[in-house]
Design a protein around this nucleic acid. Structure first.
Lengths: 213, 213, 213, 213
DNA sequence: TATGAATGAGAATTCATTCAT
DNA sequence: GATGAATGAATTCTCATTCAT
């Protein structure tokens, strides 16, 4: 009668190959589902069958719907923070910001589902992601805002509010992932070739603006 | 001699005061609900009680959840098209675009719920809004793209791709409505005073860019 | 503050022309509905709109769904008893029975909805029609059974069980009304021309049987 | 690796004993219910509790009310076609038809619920049974009509219209199942002893008619 | 590990009926 | 007489989760 606790994802016990594989399949299927239909609109049934396993088996790995969801959100944060970390006070401000825009756009191109998942979560009030964003990400953001503000103060970039600049970069780059369906409808495109045009335009706008000198 | 069918909102029959009032209350409550939890995550129960009436009474005015939702979406489109219509080929390009940014940002400030509703809908694949966006809005967008392209060709604004410029304006301005909860958390603000800072920064970026000349 | 009781159909107060007309329209619409979908499957809504009036107005004339239904059933019984009454002990047995078959078949042809209504009611256990059939109709049936038994005893018709003969006549003649949809599908017919063939065959069978003498 | 979809009755996957048992219990309870109250008048609630299981568990086996109903109808058709198949061109016409009457009456005695279910369905317009009756049963009926017509043409049975003869056999034999409640009220009987009297009378009528030679 | 079986708590919608005018 | 408005009580079906094996 040994207590035979389930290996619940996230626990420290060493995982077998099957466990790792199944957890990955579940997260992948869940990302598909959650990123499109949101938390409330998604069903464990769909996720389980998309992951190719039974519902009880899925619940053997994750305690419930919320567990899967928050696991995804946790794994997501670094997609948000990684590009931000790249902004260096030592570099050339314009180069740094251009690179940041490019990195963010690349994330949108390569990880659209994650971006949509987060967008869904935040639009709906950020009930689950709240604490995950509270610690390090917030500190990181503050640090980078300070750097940008420094650049502004030193006259190395135009006089803008750093946080609103960051909002602008976030929104413009994530737009291509979040509103993918609309973008594709308007552009009539299928692949991701439009990301190059997008970057050229964003680069032009952010660096030099619309006004002709 | 008329049959006693429910007055089903949207029908041509003249509406009584009670009808108008109740339909308005329902739509308002539904906007609250849908804009936060999305279509699937919202319940008629919540909407009805928020509107201060019983569920069956709500269904006396609208045939079902979808009816309320699509009614809201239909009434929404003009918030999206109205500012676009203002862009005039005759005006000064820079003025026109600055005004457009300002108008869009004002819409976000005054109608955040509507913006979020649409964002939710589009992120989730635009299943209901599809046809509503198909006709006039698409034609309107094409017309404005043509105008902007003309400005580019005439060298009156920088060489950018008009459609990606419009995407950038949409995303940056709607960001303040769609991701309101995140914006407020980061800014630590309650009212809508931050919209002014937002506009200044967006104006600076879009018109002159970050690079110092 | 005079008690202004509704004129509830069936009450003795003299009826106005409007009352009579509306009650007739209601019963006609209800017969359409009940005879096809049965009591439980029918809705007051459908009946009201088929009768061209509002639901509350319909309920002004009849206290409820059951009231309409039982009113119809009550008015129906005579379609069942009238032909039976025609069977006369004085007549020629064969003539009497042929006439009865013919009369019953005519009722099916001219009143198919009523026949179906009753069939529905009896198949479903005759919960409402029970008492209506208890008194006079039962006595009448017994009387006619006695007459037929007399004919059998006198050797004027073949040795059959009168009640089963009557069942046979009922079932064969009502079949054309009750299972109208199936009959028409099989015969591929639209009008009521097939009733003549039906009568010829029934006459042949009931009077002389299949065996060739 | 298989998804955990419900075993939905009718699918090809091999069934467990529990499945078979539960599906049988459901169908039996549903037959009780549907045969008396018809499709619209029956509730899943009643069927589930009569089958001794919860509503969701019932819906684990059948996708919905209609699924149960059509499953019953499908399983029913053979009760209708089997006796018809027995009619053989090679046999003695009178014997064949007497046997057919007897078989049909036996079906009514042993399967009254099935007969009533079909009657209910056809009276109400045969919305679900339509296609089930379209193929083989129709062809079978035509074949038998041809055989009977041949007998008529050869002078081996009386000159009757075969299809109306079949209608007469159907209606008289099914009457005892369909209108069971009325039959029992009139006869004041409980068991099924009256089926013997019924057969004697039907045999007498169909074979030799009422007229005394 | 994995799945078949089961269920309580919802959620959308329908419907007979009542109320107020 | 007639109708607009309102609702409680079903009724069908969904879904996260649990149980047993």
């Amino acid at each position: 009668m040994m207590a035979d606790k389930a290996p619940r994802a996230g626990q420290t016990r060493r995982k077998t190959a099957i466990q790792k594989n199944n957890e990955a399949k579940i997260l992948d299927a869940a990302l598909d589902e959650f990123s499109i239909t949101g938390f409330r609109g998604s069903t464990i049934d769909n996720i389980a069958s998309a992951a190719g396993m039974s519902k009880p088996n899925l619940l053997y790995y994750y305690t419930g719907k919320e567990h899967i969801y928050t696991t995804l959100l946790d794994q997501l944060i670094h997609l948000w923070t990684d590009p931000l970390e790249e902004i260096s006070a030592e570099g050339d401000p314009i180069e740094e910001l251009r690179d940041y825009i490019h990195l963010k756009l690349e994330i949108s191109r390569t990880h659209p589902r994650e971006s949509r998942l987060l967008a869904n979560e935040i639009i709906q009030g950020a009930h689950f992601v709240g604490e995950a964003l509270a610690g390090y990400p917030t500190d990181l953001l503050k640090a980078k805002v300070t750097i940008i503000q420094q650049w502004v103060d030193e006259g190395r970039i135009a006089k803008i509010d750093p946080i609103h600049l960051i909002f602008a970069i976030w929104s413009t780059t994530q737009h291509y992932a979040n509103f993918d369906s609309q973008v594709r409808t308007i552009l009539g495109t299928k692949g991701d070739g439009h990301y190059e045009d997008a970057f050229k335009t964003l680069e032009a706008i952010f660096l030099d603006g619309l006004r002709v000198k």
